[in-house]
Design a protein around this nucleic acid. Structure first.
Lengths: 229, 229
DNA sequence: ATTACTTAGTGTAAAAAATACACCCTATAT
DNA sequence: ATATAGGGTGTATTTTTTACACTAAGTAAT
């Protein structure tokens, strides 16, 4: 390889925008850096891609190291490669977004070795970010806004069992606008991808709502019937 | 940088799916490789990213070397990084698609140094491709199919001045289905992004059609009014 | 000049989808 | 029993999408 491929001092990394939804708020996971450059700054979780890792594997590993979870929904969405985006050399970064369930079933306790601490931070209240991470975040948010309209990704942010109101909240917060309750329900149910669990919410101090589940099999049958929420 | 960033023998490249539309056919530009590996195979045009080039710059350069054109419409769409995608080492490839006008105004004569020859080949008749280029192509085609429904990219494949029938052809071929002529025209004109040039097609042996032009300024005014073709 | 040929260009009715809108229901807490 | 808080429902109107077929205009051949 050495003679064949022209090369210079460079490497590539993965950066992840990890979205979580909790108590009606959309949050992302940020770490406080423990190393130069940008020591003590907040940054997106990320790491150098390993020698024998595919990009997807690398992204999964990073998420797993950070949260202890596997099988998180992730999508690669853009690659950032400006010459000077990293002050110490040429680092091309492949960005992923991830969606995961906070609270509800599984609370996630972020752990981390290469960072002082990791925190869930409301996307409406982000601090200044290291490197070009603001740009990476912006594009990630834009992507999920677009995708949530056509693909069933909202479910990834909710517990297995959820109420229609919770689902509507996810849409309202990501799309950043109010939706009409009756129209939302009518449309959502009409897709036929929700299974009514014949079961009610527990432990609420008011009328309990019906729980639903996203039915992957029914969704698969729709195939490319171009859903549009 | 050497001490700070863990690294191994790797590099990154750009690969381009260059779409062109000519005589009712959707084609892409392929090169016949002159070097190992995959000598004599057909491949997507691509190259190693330069040391002081951003990814976008690199993609533009590659396109320019190949076609002599600048200001081609391009979008980065996905990054391919499987460990063994390149037989000679770890090469992560950032994929772009490009759209350009064939025939009509400006005919393009592909030139190339690092390849025996370059040819426009109908997407319905692709040969076996080197590396993972079939996969890269498939994803690129999928992306433009999706994008053409919401963004005004079809115009990039046509000459400055075009007829509504030509425009409809682009849609039909990319979406791979027949559209109704009256409905297509009604909808397309209703967006208000076409300027009627009060001018007719020349040199046809039948009734000449009206020529239109895509009006970028009008389009910009729509802002995020979510066009849907 | 007539005719044949080829593509350009046009309207309407029916169906489907999207929107706007307000009240009663039910479980719990006091 | 009463107050509270969110759960759940239907209809009429508007907008968008779909399906569908003929005349108009220019060229070419005779």
């Amino acid at each position: 390889m050495k003679e064949v491929l022209p090369k210079f001092d460079s490497t590539f990394s993965i950066d992840c925008v990890v979205f979580g939804f909790d108590e009606g708020e959309l949050k992302i996971l940020l770490i406080e850096r423990n190393e130069e450059p940008f020591k003590d700054w907040w940054a997106l979780p990320g790491n150098i891609v390993g020698e024998v890792e595919s990009l997807d594997q690398s992204a999964s590993r990073i998420l797993n190291e950070l949260t202890g979870l596997s099988n998180i929904y992730m999508e690669q969405y853009y690659t950032f490669g400006d010459v000077n985006r990293h002050p110490q050399g040429r680092v091309v970064s492949i960005a992923y977004y991830a969606l995961l369930r906070l609270g509800g079933d599984k609370a996630v306790k972020p752990i981390s070795t290469y960072a002082k601490r990791a925190h869930w931070i409301n996307v409406k209240d982000l601090p200044r970010l290291a490197f070009d991470h603001q740009q990476i975040f912006d594009k990630g948010l834009e992507k999920i806004k677009r995708r949530i309209k056509h693909q069933p990704i909202a479910f990834e942010l909710l517990p297995e069992k959820f109420t229609l109101t919770q689902l509507q909240n996810v849409y309202e917060i990501i799309l950043n606008k109010k939706l009409d309750k009756r129209n939302f329900r009518k449309k959502m149910l009409s897709f036929g991808v929700l299974r009514d669990l014949q079961e009610k919410q527990q432990g609420v101090s008011f009328r309990a709502a019906t729980l639903y589940k996203f039915d992957k099999r029914k969704y698969a049958k729709l195939f490319e019937k171009e859903i549009s929420f």
